[in-house]
Each structure stands twice: as structure tokens, then as C-alpha cells.
Computed example of a mutant assay.
Amino acid sequence: MRSVITAIADYTQAIRIDPNYTDTDYATAYANRGVAHAQLNKHQLAIQDYQEALRLNPGYAQVYYYRGNLRYYFTDYSGAVQDHSTALMLNPDLIEAYYARGDAHSASRKYQEAEADYNAFLRFYPKHATAHYKRGNVRLELAKCPEAVADYSIFLRSQPLHAEAYYKRVDARIQLKDNQGAIEDYNYFISLKPNYAEAYYKRGIAREDVGDVEGAAADYRQALNSIHSL
């Protein structure tokens, strides 16, 4: 924390008095100070610094990326998409902008565009677990259930205690009529969230569908007990 505050003071001092700074140097100083402000959650000050950096250097791709992230934070998803798109136009090698733009598209429920962005990011970072999880989410929304299952499975190999991923993979498996796979995922989920009544109820349905009447009845009873214990 102290080093970030010191960095802000240093950038401010340089902006005020350095006679050798060019516009590009000043743009870099404003950009770096904006990053430091963002680290301290001084988001409005960060935005102001990014605006000034872009005034001095309109082709500064990284700053569009930084500002896009802040616009996403403020739920200005269209603004975030615009900034990340500009960043990629100026610097196609700024791969993290695909990931960030995918988040903004997903938040706007533009799932096809989000999937395309996560695809682009994963071509460069195929082992990025969270990107697989997020692409799984948008593929589930697009009813691409086999692909969603594959993405969740990749994610869960590195994050085996992530309860929500099991629950989401269940949704995809149910749509694929893979009741046995769904039961296995409910088992994992319930081991992590043992008081979640809905999971028992839904596992009961899946068990009933595969002919496990006694297991289904036990789950329905447990669902009722979990509700009553809340």
C-alpha cells in the first residue's frame, strides 16, 4: 500500500515539474498514476488520469484497456466493449483485452460475442481455467451443452472444490439427459454444500429418472429437513 502511495506522489511530481517530458512521457505518467489510483480503489481519479493520458496519446492501447476495465466495474458494459475493441484495434497482441471484452459481452447477455472473445483468448492461453469456466457459462446460455460440460470439466480439474461449477455442469448434463452424470455432480456439490435443499430435491428427481426410487425418496426427505433447518 505504501509503495503505491509513494508511486502516486512520484508520478504527480514528475507531471508537475519535469521539463524534459514529451507528451508521450506525460501520457505514460498519467497512465501509471491511473493504475496506482485504481489499485487504491480511487476509481474516479484513475478515470481522470486515463482520460488525460489518452488526450496526450490517443493511440495508447493499454490505457483503453485500463479504462475499459474501470467502465466494466461501473457496469458501463457498452463503454467497456468499446474501449477493449479500440485497444485491440490499436494493438492486436493485447490478448487480455479479449478476455475482458468477453466479460463485458457476457454481462450484457451477448453470449455469442462473449464466446468468440473467450475463444480468441484461449487460443493463446489454453490452460487458463477461469476462462474455460466463463466460456462454459456462456455456452450453457447458448445451449451448447456438450461444449459447456467440456469447459466445466477442464476448470474443475484445477479447481475441484468449486461447488458452483459442479452445479452448472449439472444443468448442462440434465439438458443432455445424462442423469447419471448429473447425480455424480450433485454428489460432489452436496459434499461441499450439505445444507442446500434444492440440490437434494433435484438429485431426487434425477435418481427417480434412473429408477432409484429409494434414493429419490431419501433425497426428498433430506430436502425437506434442510428447508426446516434454515
Rank of each mutant, 00 (worst) to 15 (best):
M1Q: 11
S3R: 14
I5V: 12
A7H: 03
I8Y: 04
A9K: 14
D10Y: 03
D10S: 09
Y11V: 03
Q13F: 13
A14L: 09
P19H: 05
A27K: 09
A27I: 01
Y30G: 03
A31V: 01
A31G: 08
N32G: 04
V35K: 12
A36V: 07
H37I: 07
Q39P: 04
L40S: 02
N41D: 14
A46G: 10
D49N: 10
D49F: 01
Y50V: 04
Y50H: 13
L54G: 01
L54A: 01
R55Q: 15
L56P: 05
Y64E: 03
Y66V: 05
G68R: 00
N69P: 00
L70M: 02
R71K: 09
F74P: 09
F74H: 13
F74D: 15
T75H: 13
T75W: 08
D76R: 07
Y77K: 11
A80P: 07
A80V: 02
Q82S: 10
H84K: 07
T86R: 14
L90W: 06
P92V: 01
L94G: 11
I95E: 13
E96W: 13
Y98N: 04
Y98D: 01
Y99Q: 09
R101C: 00
G102I: 05
A107C: 07
A107L: 08
A107Y: 10
R109M: 09
K110L: 08
Q112V: 00
A114M: 02
E115L: 11
A116Q: 11
Y118C: 02
L122G: 03
F124T: 15
F124D: 14
P126W: 14
A129V: 03
A129M: 06
L140E: 11
L142V: 06
A143N: 12
A143E: 11
V149C: 08
V149T: 14
V149A: 08
D151T: 00
Y152D: 13
L156S: 04
P160G: 00
A165K: 11
Y166A: 06
D171L: 13
Q175T: 04
K177W: 08
Y186I: 07
L192H: 08
N195L: 11
N195R: 09
A197I: 06
E198N: 11
Y201V: 03
Y201T: 07
R203G: 10
G204Q: 06
G204T: 08
E208F: 14
G211E: 15
D212M: 03
A218D: 12
Y220S: 02
Q222C: 06
Q222D: 06
L224E: 13
N225Q: 15
